[in-house]
């Protein structure tokens, strides 16, 4: 970085490069928005799923679990818990918490109603039907 390459050249490359790649990123994002309906299972976004997502959020489930691989790593992946366990098992599990087994990781009891449990399961079913390019590698998540 000697004489010929000046600070103002570096600055111009910075602004030019940034603008170019911001535009490219926006173009790719725009294309993604067009492609998503084929993959994101939006056809199944029912009232129940929407409510399930809200329950997922206001109880901060993501603070222990991951969902499609994002979140915390303290408790199992839930993006594919629906095919792994099925609806009845999931509901019974949530209601049976906490196990109180000494030394084991504990999940709180959130006191959900039956309707709320159904909504959560609907949300997890919807999540499991998103096209994730074959992730996770196997059913264990």
């Amino acid at each position: 970085m000697s004489g010929t390459f000046t600070k103002s050249m570096a600055r111009n490359i910075f602004y030019g490069g940034t603008v170019f790649f911001v535009l490219l990123f926006l173009a790719l994002s725009f294309d993604t928005m067009k492609e998503l309906p084929k993959r994101d299972n939006r056809a199944n976004l029912t009232e129940s799923v929407i409510n399930g997502k809200k329950l997922w959020e206001v109880n901060n489930c993501i603070g222990c679990h991951s969902l499609l691989g994002e979140g915390a790593y303290f408790a199992p992946e839930l993006g594919n818990v629906y095919p792994r366990r099925g609806p009845e098992f999931i509901k019974a599990w949530i209601q049976a918490m906490p196990t109180g087994a000494p030394g084991r990781r504990q999940m709180p009891n959130f006191g959900f109603t039956d309707q709320e449990l159904d909504d959560l399961v609907a949300f997890l079913k919807y999540s499991s039907e998103i096209n994730t390019a074959n992730w996770p590698p196997n059913i264990e998540g």
Binding site: T18, L24, F25, L28, D31, L36, G69, P136
Partner: peptide, 23 residues
Amino acid sequence: ITLALVSGIIGTGHHYFWIGTPE
């Protein structure tokens, strides 16, 4: 910072592998 933004902006794509976004 040029290197950072040139690589990092499109680099966001490393989070778009398995969340339902195009392949």
